[in-house]
């Protein structure tokens, strides 16, 4: 039924009517909540409660992927890794940027339609969001770049310093579930575009994100096992041994090169839409930083 609707949409929507030949990996029924994993990999029950993971799975090399790598998060991973250094750097940078208090204001404003917010608490759980000052849907890192610029500093989206501040901001939402609303307005449009982009075949290898992230779950690719795309955004920006501190959109860029197309710049609309899509798949799952992934 779902596929039928998407096919119909393909033919009916005027914006796509004059589109040249495109191919899509058949669309799965994705839900904007982490529990939607039940319809995809069925592993959600193993990593649903981050405080009580089944450590027997973690000990088994061919089973551990079923934990969606959540055993690499605190409190199971108590190791000092470079993510902690980034968190410290984030605090220092934040204090420097926020000397006059305007940097924080810039981050937290436009947060709710309700009362004016002054705290960083919970901020991470509400991004990506539509910012009226920027006129579009943006991720937290893009907002950090924007607000730093107003303070006269360059913190490019995806750079170490930007991600460091992002980890620091996220640390005020530890344990709070991601909560973005894609049921209406610009976020809904972005979610729908993101879902299509996730299934669109592109690049030299003529693959889509879904070719690996749906079609290859549980299989080993590039020396790591592909896990559920649900619940992934909760631990970003993340420390990766080979790549350093990696924001979600830098991760997109790396996967884009695996597909065989030129990586887009963090903050491009396509990556923002993919971020909205994947963040919605993490709705309901608690933020966990600083984290580490292979």
């Amino acid at each position: 039924m779902r596929i039928l609707i998407i096919m119909l949409a393909l033919f009916l929507l005027p914006a796509w009517a004059d589109e040249p030949h495109k191919e899509y990996t058949s669309a799965e029924p994705f839900l904007p909540h982490v529990s939607g994993d039940d319809h995809l990999t069925g592993t959600y029950r193993y990593w649903k409660d981050p405080k009580n993971l089944d450590m027997r799975l973690a000990g088994s090399p061919d089973q551990s992927w079923k934990l969606n790598w959540k055993h690499l998060d605190y409190p199971f991973n108590k190791e000092m890794h470079a993510g902690h250094l980034a968190l410290d750097r984030g605090l220092t940078l934040f204090n420097k940027l926020n000397r006059s208090g305007t940097f924080k204001n810039c981050l937290v404003m436009y947060r709710f339609n309700g009362p004016y917010e002054t705290s960083l608490r919970g901020l991470r759980t509400h991004y990506p969001a539509f910012r009226t000052d920027l006129g579009r849907v943006v991720g937290l890192e893009e907002v950090i770049e924007h607000c730093a610029k107003l303070e006269g500093e360059v913190l490019q989206n995806g750079s170490y310093d930007n991600s460091a501040v992002s980890i620091y901001v996220a640390s005020h939402s530890l344990g709070m579930p991601i909560k973005i609303d894609v049921s209406s307005g610009p976020l809904r449009e972005s979610w729908r575009r993101g879902e299509r982009l996730f299934h669109q075949k592109v690049g030299r290898n003529n693959m889509s994100c879904a070719s690996c992230h749906v079609g290859r779950i549980g299989q080993s690719l590039r020396a790591t096992v592909v896990t559920s795309p649900y619940g992934d955004v909760a631990h970003y920006p993340v420390y990766r041994d080979r790549f350093g501190i990696t924001s979600l959109q830098v991760r997109f860029a790396q996967c884009s090169l695996d597909l065989g197309f030129n990586a887009l710049k963090p903050g491009s609309q396509a990556y923002n839409d993919l971020e909205v899509f994947l963040t919605a798949l993490t709705n309901g799952y608690p933020v966990s930083v600083p984290s580490e992934r292979p």
Partner: peptide
């Protein structure tokens, strides 16, 4: 074709040449 490279304590995202060129292939842009 450039790959992103994160440099510690830098506010710039660096880009380095990838091992193969993908310029001719369609992207998600």
């Amino acid at each position: 074709t450039l790959a992103p490279k994160v440099v510690v304590d830098s506010g710039q995202l660096h880009w380095v040449p990838h091992f193969i060129d993908f310029s001719q292939w369609p992207t998600l842009c």
